[in-house]
Amino acid sequence: MAKALFVLTLWLCTSLSTLAATPPKKPPMWGELASEQQQILAPLSDDWDNFEPERKRRWIGIAKRYPNMKPDEQTRVQRRMQAWAKLTPKERDAARARYKKMEKLPQKRKEGLKGQWEEYNRLPEQERRQLGSTPRKPSAAAPKVKPPAAASPEQTAPPEVAPALGPGR
């Protein structure tokens, strides 16, 4: 009995130390991605190999969701992917925090956010600056990579980001 328990304990200790010591599976380099993943993540091809493992895993996760997205969502992902990847970790964290904050708004207010964004962009630039607005990154407004074939119907849509200068969108 005691011998069996000793063996069990030994096995537990060995397995948990292996579990703790084994690094999580290394995410693939660009060349190792499946061709479908490469097609979806094409806007990131230049920077992919420099991404941290955690970021690669996130993008692979998003690529997995991609086939289940609506066509307009696929277009948006394609259009925003590069700009999102070019942000600093701090900027991404701040954007996530604002998203979480907006998510907590009542449904009615959430639905009106797009209209409010448009209204905000109609404000004179000086007024926006006074509120804390900083000049926008050009990469967010000018994506250079074409979306894959799945998103082709929407690919000619105009950039959705308002220019930093001048009223209107």
């Binding site: 996130r58 948006r76 992902v77 999102w84 604002r98 998510e103 956010l113 926006r128 509120l131 926008r136």
Partner: peptide, 26 residues
């Protein structure tokens, strides 16, 4: 984080809406 990223990338609001401190203040 992956869930939020997917939502930000696919949502109605453009990225700038989440990046603009002025919009937040407004």
């Amino acid at each position: 984080i992956e869930e939020i990223d997917a939502a930000v990338l696919t949502g109605d609001l453009p990225l700038d809406a989440y990046l603009d401190k002025g919009f937040d203040a407004w």
